[in-house]
Simulated scan of single mutants.
Amino acid sequence: MTNLADTLNQGDLRLRPPVDTDLPDLLRHLNDIRIVRWLAAVPQPFDTGAADGLLAHGMHAGENLRLIELGGSVAGGLCIGASLWYWLHPAFWRRGLMRRALDLAIPAYFTHPAPPLIATCHTENVASRSLLASLGFSPCLAGRRMFFQSTQSAEPCLDYLMAPEQWHLLHPPIIPVGRASLRPAQQKDARQLALILARVGGGVWPNADALPSFMENHRFRGQSRGLFVIIDEYRRCIGMALMTGYHADLCFLSDDDEARHRTNISAALANRMFSHA
Rank of each mutant, 00 (worst) to 15 (best):
L131Q: 11
H29D: 15
R37V: 02
L211W: 04
D209V: 11
C157H: 10
V229A: 14
A163K: 12
S128I: 14
R179H: 05
H276K: 05
R16P: 12
I230Y: 02
L4W: 03
P90Q: 12
R272D: 05
P206N: 07
A114R: 07
G222M: 10
M243L: 11
A190E: 12
P139V: 09
Q44P: 05
I35P: 04
L242I: 04
N217Y: 07
D189R: 00
I175Q: 04
A194G: 11
L13I: 05
V204I: 13
P156R: 11
P164V: 09
F46S: 02
P164M: 09
V19K: 10
H261F: 15
V36R: 01
R37L: 11
M243P: 02
R183T: 07
R235N: 10
S224I: 03
L169G: 05
L269F: 01
T21D: 11
D209H: 12
P173R: 02
P43I: 09
C251L: 05
A82T: 08
G76P: 13
F228H: 08
M215Q: 14
T244E: 10
I196S: 03
H112D: 08
V204P: 14
P17N: 02
M273A: 00
A208N: 10
D6L: 10
L88Y: 01
P17D: 06
Q223G: 12
R272Y: 05
G201H: 07
S130F: 00
L242P: 04
L135N: 03
R236F: 06
N64F: 10
A5G: 14
Q166H: 12
P90W: 06
S73P: 02
Y160W: 15
I230P: 00
M243S: 15
I196M: 07
R183N: 01
L169W: 08
C121K: 10
F148W: 04
G11T: 01
R14H: 02
N264P: 00
I174P: 00
Y160Q: 14
P43V: 09
L195S: 10
E124T: 09
A190P: 00
R34P: 01
T244D: 14
R236Q: 15
Y109E: 04
D25K: 03
G222A: 09
F148Y: 13
L15W: 06
G77D: 12
F252W: 15
S266I: 01
A119R: 03
D22C: 04
E258F: 00
L253G: 06
N207C: 05
A190V: 11
L4Y: 04
L4F: 05
G239R: 06
L70Q: 14
I80K: 00
K188I: 10
I35L: 07
N207Q: 09
A267R: 07
R16N: 06
Q166G: 06
L131G: 09
G136Q: 07
V126I: 13
M240G: 11
V229E: 08
L158C: 07
G143A: 09
R221K: 14
T120H: 02
I33H: 14
A133E: 15
S181D: 06
L13F: 00
F148E: 07
M240P: 10
N271P: 00
P164D: 08
T120Y: 01
R145F: 07
L117R: 03
E155Y: 00
Y86F: 15
G202Q: 13
P116G: 03
D232N: 11
